[in-house]
Design a protein around this nucleic acid. Structure first.
Lengths: 244, 244
DNA sequence: ATGCAGAAATTGGTTGGACCATTGGACCAC
DNA sequence: GTGGTCCAATGGTCCAACCAATTTCTGCAT
């Protein structure tokens, strides 16, 4: 009843209104991610606004990753749409490779530990079985392909985030993961990157299966520590072989 | 001389190119947040693209919170812009108030603890003095205004994030903070929200000053725990006084 | 019928030009 | 000064095309 009792008047908000209408439409039609939504031209006609306005609204959604536009094909829903959505722009310090990577790892260390602990608290027997399945797949891939199991490794972790019951874990760590790989790719780094972290996947799983949050947290911290070590070794190596 | 010598084929990417040009412009002119950038019409003319294309690009930036457009006035830079920027769209589970708030707190618990620990490791004497200053201001405000010290409280925490040396902490927690307050505002919740967390600010500071990472982590966890308790109490209260 | 190349329709991307609504400053009467 | 009026600048919306990528249809050769 202080600033809310005298809100700014709302004279125009066309494109915002378009988005609200879109939210309603998606809800009414129960559109699922991957489905196509109406043509820009149709939307413009139905909503009685210019196609330009529709485009501005869709551009915003595209920027938020909610929607994907394919020229000649159509506009497709990319994620569940909800009225309350937070957008979080992140900027790294200076774009310096090593520093940025370490910073993403610090975030990941914090979240990974917490997610593992929550997972250990909340996992149902079915959840535990699912995580074990992912772990088996990963270990198998690790052995047959001599350590090249990045994809399966990632799926194992994602399973843990999901069981933690908090979608934010997966979303934020996924962003860190992407950021990490943007700088990483496979730039002549240590060949056996990730090898050291391998055994901790099973110890984490054991703690989760035993419903031991503190243990899971501790093992997750150890896992990230090995990655940080690998990274430091890789950085030292790079420093020797080149300059700039 | 790696990717610059073989740029991606340029079939279509007008608006993206516009953004890249804008990044260069902001860098070249050393524009600071708050300053005005060129008119849409001027940009369109200079870049040899349609004004509509310029608008699409600016709409994206506006969606990212990088610029603010004021009709009749101009377009203003709202945040520092850098080429390596990660955009992270976050969506909460169902928009259910209580669940969403608890989820943001789980993230904050993880990060707050880690940031406090890192801060205790890395703080210089000057850093410690700065944090103590913020703490004093906060405690003073708390006493004179009977607990209404949200602003000063927040500044105290931000100081810790900054000293942690990792800007990602502040960015992510700030997003959580905003999300929290979007649902919160002051919806007839517990009047003394945050009171319980008050003493832990000083205990956290003490651990940081004593260079005790483990202690700082533990105290930070306690602080978040009190907030979670407050939130649960508020939710229970609400459940009694209304329905939906 | 079948398969496939090419035409036609569909759809997002871009353009240029026009007009409206808001803003902020200049100017003026009091 | 104070308040009002006017006006130029600027973002917001609209329209009517055309371009480029994609999909769908058509029709011919097999």
């Amino acid at each position: 009843m202080d600033q809310n009792s005298l809100p700014p008047i709302q004279t125009t908000a066309r494109d915002d209104a378009v988005l609200k209408a879109l939210v309603g439409f998606v809800g009414a039609e129960a559109l699922r991610p991957g489905e196509k939504l109406p043509t820009e031209r149709i939307l413009a006609e139905r909503l009685k606004v210019s196609r330009n306005t529709v485009r501005e609204a869709l551009t915003r959604w595209e920027g938020l990753g909610l929607v994907e536009r394919r020229q000649g094909s159509g506009t497709y829903l990319k994620a569940a749409v909800s009225p309350d959505m937070l957008h979080m722009p992140l900027t790294l310090s200076g774009g310096n490779d090593f520093t940025s990577l370490m910073q993403t790892l610090e975030i990941r260390r914090a979240l990974e530990a917490e997610a593992a602990a929550l997972c250990a608290e909340r996992a149902s027997p079915a959840d535990i079985a699912e995580i074990e399945r992912k772990l088996d797949i990963m270990e198998q891939a690790f052995r047959t392909r001599d350590g090249m199991s990045a994809e399966e490794d990632w799926e194992f972790h994602q399973a843990i985030y999901r069981v933690s019951g908090n979608p934010l874990f997966e979303q934020i760590i996924a962003a860190m993961h992407e950021l990490f790989h943007r700088f990483w790719e496979h730039p002549l780094g240590v060949r056996d990157f990730g090898h050291a972290s391998f055994p901790y996947h099973r110890t984490i799983y054991d703690c989760i299966a035993a419903r031991d949050p503190q243990g899971a947290r501790a093992e997750a911290l150890k896992l990230i520590a090995t990655v940080e070590d690998d990274l430091k070794r890789g950085a030292a190596k790079l420093k020797l072989s080149s300059q700039t």
